[in-house]
Write a protein that binds this DNA or RNA. Structure first.
Lengths: 347, 347
DNA sequence: TCGCGTTACTAAAGCGGTTTTATTAACAAT
DNA sequence: ATTGTTAATAAAACCGCTTTAGTAACGCGA
């Protein structure tokens, strides 16, 4: 019953040529010229037999996997609430498909990052990798650099030789907070998107501080809370802020996914946005404009980031010696309904 | 400069044994007993050289890719707003990792589904696949059956021999609408999650109709709108329903992602949920409890569905002759704040 | 006629593993 | 002493492709 697999030999036999020729036809090798008739014979044989080249054999012979990996270093539990994943996967898929490559998704345990990175590449499962949500002090990534493995980080890393793609998180956060300041707010709380070990959280908080400094507002540690990527953590952070009884008229929440939780907490306190409290978010998720109130936020071009990360990676795979690039895409502030001028608030 | 790759031969040389032995040690082949000393020598050599077996070579030799594919048949544009993707990827990853497999994500163009399925499997890129969001009349899937390829569908398909995992969408929808009816509502609109070519949309609408029928309520075609997975489509569908001027006191929205858009449309009409209009959703996304009002909805255990799909697939890969199974997991109705008794509404 | 360069193809050697079959040594049994 | 078994390892074949190094055939100028 075991229908045997069809190999290039079968095609060669049927077409009356050698496997070499079959290979040349399939890969359209230019430096060897094969006559139109031969080419046609081979193509017909392929079609007739329904031949599909074996990917492993090919990978083995060419020493390239024709696949890239999307590496997530947060535990599966976090992946569940990774609101950007669809956009990232969609973005990667769109370019990967064009290039006839495959996309492998891997999760690496924080404990044994380096090991896993090495294995993935050495095993030649993938030709290069795209890394998500880097930590500020990511030992794994640092080691990656020295391994000279094609890799690009989606996120900002200081003094890293790995290519990276991101927006300028710090500047974007600064702009967001400036928006609040321009509306007259002076007492502005901040809920980060994650703990400061994550570079994005760190940068966004830094941007928040920059804005305050520029405006001559003193930084108040007690107005800061750290969330943990998901709505629940945003809810809890906001609750803590509110329960503290300290006065503030606006809040910068460094992720819309966290913000949605924060809004719910605010409403639980019988306050409303933006009448009692202005809020500006960050990320602009697909649903950010549909929640109540529609969230004023920083638009993160996630799809484009993913696509560009992929381009950079492919470039690096093709030319091993290409230098690392740090791409910064533009962000935009999207003004919706969750912010209001300080004066007009009830308070 | 080209540091040559380390092969099992290198390990064999260093350990003073043959490649065969190295292979036996690595794969822990039981029928051949290798002496503890030899085993140790080999393991030390492996460690010293940092040897990692080449995946392609292995796949080629064993005729198994040690990878499964997650196949999405909706265009990248849709993937962007696929709210379940994180949970599905997370679920798959958690079991795939345990089994030392890889996860490949593929998008197949609707036009050439069958071709792509065939290629993926024949090329032995993957040993089996998990298929998402099936269409009711999915020619591609039908052909898949005949190819005897390990595959499991996440979704319900009538008279299909492919294994599948899902909840009972029809029953769940019926329960949701019954919930509305039990609250006294008689005029109940429905916004589907997608057009009826998608099996989930079809089933959920059928469940809606079942509930009406049971309660002796006549089905009114004009109270139905079809959304298209995302919030915007929900917003548009709801707007259309509202602008029609027809009377209804509750609405069943067959997807929370669509529902969030619907809620925004309702608010734009200066109506509120549930005071003016009760709403029950479907899916229970991570943020469903955080929006305003917290959405009463059907909880879909997406993570477990993914995990079980994966288990089923692995089973099928190991035992080609295992019969197709159709797993139906339990759903739960989560009663939050978006529904209210008919009497108590303003109207 | 010979040599030489093209053209169109092929034989054979990898790629780096696994697996079947063979080999050797040790030891027990006859 | 001879044979048979078994344990431990090795040799070699194989998986299905790519790619290098040819080779046969042909035309062409000298």
């Amino acid at each position: 019953m075991a229908k045997k697999r069809i190999t290039s030999q079968d095609v060669a036999d049927l077409a009356g040529v050698s496997r070499t020729t079959v290979s040349f036809v399939i890969n359209d090798v230019k430096q060897y010229n094969i006559s139109p008739e031969t080419r046609k014979k081979v193509q017909e044989a392929i079609k007739e037999l329904g031949y599909v080249p074996n990917a492993s054999a090919r990978a083995l012979a060419t020493r390239s996997a024709k696949a890239i990996g999307l590496i997530m270093n947060r535990s599966p539990q976090y992946i569940l609430s990774d609101t950007f994943l669809p956009q990232i996967v969609g973005g990667l898929l769109s370019v990967v498909n064009q290039h006839q490559l495959s996309l492998l998704v891997e999760w690496v345990d924080a404990e044994q990052q380096v090991e896993t990175y090495r294995k993935l590449i050495k095993a030649k499962h993938i030709d290069g990798m795209i890394l998500l949500t880097p930590l500020l002090d990511d030992r794994g990534l640092k080691e990656l650099e020295s391994l000279e493995i094609p890799a690009v980080v989606m996120g900002e890393l200081e003094d890293s030789n790995l290519s990276s793609v991101d927006i300028d998180n710090r500047l974007a956060a600064e702009r967001a907070v400036q928006h609040l300041i321009n509306l007259g707010h002076r007492k502005i709380a901040c809920v980060t998107n994650a703990n400061l070990a994550f570079s994005s959280a760190f940068q966004r908080l830094a941007g928040y501080q920059d804005a305050l400094k520029d405006a001559g507002i003193e930084f108040d540690e007690t107005l800061i809370r750290h969330a943990d990527f998901d709505p629940q953590s945003g809810h809890d952070a906001m609750t803590s802020l509110l329960d503290q009884g300290k006065d503030f008229s606006a809040v910068f929440v460094a992720s819309d996914n966290v913000a949605i939780g924060a809004v719910s907490a605010i409403k639980e306190h019988n306050l409303s946005v933006p009448e009692d409290l202005s809020m500006i978010g960050f990320d602009d998720l697909p649903w950010s404009k549909f929640i109540d109130p529609p969230l004023t936020t920083i638009h993160l071009p996630a799809l484009q980031l993913a696509q560009n990360a992929c381009f950079l990676l492919l470039e690096q795979i093709q030319d091993k010696d290409s230098i690392a690039k740090h791409l910064r895409l533009d962000f935009t502030l999207i003004d919706r309904k969750s912010t209001a001028p300080f004066g007009k608030q009830k308070q």
